[in-house]
Design a protein around this nucleic acid. Sequence first.
DNA 1: GCCAACGTTGGC
DNA 2: GCCAACGTTGGC
Length: 154
Amino acid sequence: MAKQYWLMKAEEEAYSIEQWKKDKSIFWDGVRNYTARNFMRDQMKKGDGMFFYYSNGKPSGIVAIGEVVKEGYPDHTAFDPKDIHYDPKSDPKKPTWYMVDVKFVRACKQIVGLDLLKKVPGLKNMKLFKESRLSVSPVTEAEWKIIMKMIDAQ
DNA sequence: GCCAACGTTGGC
DNA sequence: GCCAACGTTGGC
């Protein structure tokens, strides 16, 4: 299958790129939305590219580039009553929630803000704008290339 | 901090 | 299975 591209959101207070840089590879736990879950469980493949996006930021935008290194597997935080993402309805024998591992590739010199992304004609159909509440969303190859160029030009 | 958008829950 | 109420996300 051809390489695919994704955009994944986190709040800076929840997980920062400085932390990611240190950790190198992380599991993307805590997603509790079926659409996002389906992308992680069924579609994300090893080697796929991803943009790390700060939501609820000042401003919000893309801050780093990563790569999928482990394909969908059960999100164990759903089984832990002490975890904030605990979901008693997820059965370890038949897990409801899945996650992937993503490794840090590089940080943007500066944030590629949402306001900037919105101004680019080639990006006007981005899923990010249309389904703004989705924490994992697909990025087309054309969109990926445009954004990579914006990052390289920084 | 407000509020629009939208997913989820639960009563019927 | 409908739909109102409620909760969450995320831009501003």
